[in-house]
Design a protein around this nucleic acid. Structure first.
Length: 358
RNA sequence: UGUCCGAUGGUGUAACGGUAGCACUGCAGAUUUUGAUUCUGCCUGCCCAGGUUCGAAUCCUGGUCGGACAA
């Protein structure tokens, strides 16, 4: 009997190819897209997750579904998206942290609500699949994510919060392919989205709308001597490690080193000032393991596009303390730190703050 | 209205007298499922007026402006 798979279609290249591959492999495939845009704001058009161009993406996903011959459904997740992802996004920024909406969205929406609504609507399926570049392994009775074959496109970082239950029923058809191979397959099959461009932003409008704030003048101060170097329109417009857009000239590159929400201060410093070695991770989520007792050597990734680096993790109160072997730049509260051992996700959590000795 | 110092692109700076470089900002692009990082490219400048030199940002004179000292 054919196994049934629900595939999350985004209207993009990757998920389309994923669906096509599953179909070719003999699964009975059902396409589904979540609708998250409620039209409250009016940003300029653009290729973003949360935005009015969602309609175009849904149209494309529908075309693709027709093209490869699978059924297609759209589920309205706008309300929940707003109360979870957007609310999280907003409150984190207003606390001077830098949230990662993709992580939240994967955990709660794509790999959560979407399947839930599909089942409620009467659809039955054995697996859930997406076009993510990641692979699932099963070891010692636990499921975990392993980096994709195409290391350059690996997306496990965004998926580290998936639970055992979520991982258990997941398929990633693109796990073993490189991006170029995926595009080539799409071209050969003449998929409608074969030439679709990469990359999408989270939101293509002004973040002020999502944060529900107005500009508020504040100072940009130099860490070294607290000298005021310039002005800004609100600390929420910045993230640790940011270099561009400060509007401040100095003898060397300046980076945002710290945000002080209470005083609406943006503290900047030199390259050296953004480097740290130790930090505390909270809001833990374990994957291959269920926790650790003592120290463990791992590699840690603290930003989607930043390369993972060697570090030691160890319990610290109810949290985890991470210590890099070499100082690392832009360790940012709110971003996720994901621990890998031999390319497999051991666990991860959210960066709470730097750990300072003495 | 005395003395001293300084005066280079939007900002901070560099250039034995030989036609101005660097960093930052800004802009454009590459990379990116986070408005970060990183990478590539681009735009702007020698306070003014004389003079000395084959030739001056660099030397001299005067002016203007800024800073410091000076009751």
């Amino acid at each position: 009997m054919e196994k049934r798979v629900l595939v999350g279609l985004s209207g993009g290249l990757d998920s389309s190819v994923a669906a096509m591959l599953l179909k070719q492999h003999g699964y009975e495939v059902i396409g589904a897209t979540m609708s998250i845009w409620d039209g409250e704001y009016s940003p300029l058009g653009g290729n973003a997750c949360y935005g009015p161009d969602e309609r175009d993406d849904i149209d494309e996903a529908r075309k693709v579904a027709e093209f490869i011959g699978i059924s297609y459904h759209v589920f309205d997740c706008a309300k929940e998206y707003k109360s979870t992802v957007l609310e999280y996004f907003r409150s984190d920024y207003l606390q001077g942290r830098t949230p990662n909406p993709c992580v939240k969205c994967n955990q709660l929406m794509k790999f959560g609500l979407l399947q839930e609504l599909a089942r409620k609507s009467g659809l039955e399926f054995d697996y859930f699949a997406t076009g993510h570049y990641a692979q699932v392994i099963h070891k010692d009775g636990r499921y975990a994510l392993k980096r994709a074959a195409d290391a350059r496109k690996d997306q496990t970082y965004f998926l580290y919060r998936l639970s055992q239950e979520q991982l258990k029923g997941v398929l990633f058809p693109l796990a073993d392919f490189k991006k170029e191979e995926v595009r080539e397959m799409a071209r050969k099959a003449a998929l409608p989205v074969a030439e679709k461009a990469e990359s999408q932003d989270f939101y293509c409008g002004d973040y002020k709308e999502l944060l529900q704030v107005e500009d508020k003048l504040g100072s940009i101060v130099l860490k070294k001597d607290n000298r005021i170097l310039g002005q800004h329109n609100g600390f929420w417009n910045f993230t640790i490690g940011q270099r561009k857009g400060l509007g401040v000239a100095y003898s060397e590159p300046l980076y945002v080193v710290e945000l002080k929400p209470n005083e609406n201060l943006v503290v900047v410093g030199t390259r050296e000032d953004v480097m740290s070695t130790s930090f505390i991770v909270d809001d833990l989520h374990w994957m291959l393991l269920t926790g650790i007792e003592g120290q463990m050597e791992v590699t840690v990734k603290i930003r989607s596009a930043s390369r993972e680096a060697e570090a030691v993790i160890e319990p610290f109160e109810n949290k985890i303390k991470v210590t890099f072997n070499q100082p690392k730049d832009a360790i940012t509260p709110g971003q996720s730190a994901v621990f890998y051992k031999n390319e497999v996700i051991v666990g991860g959590g959210v960066i709470e703050n730097l750990y300072k000795q003495d």
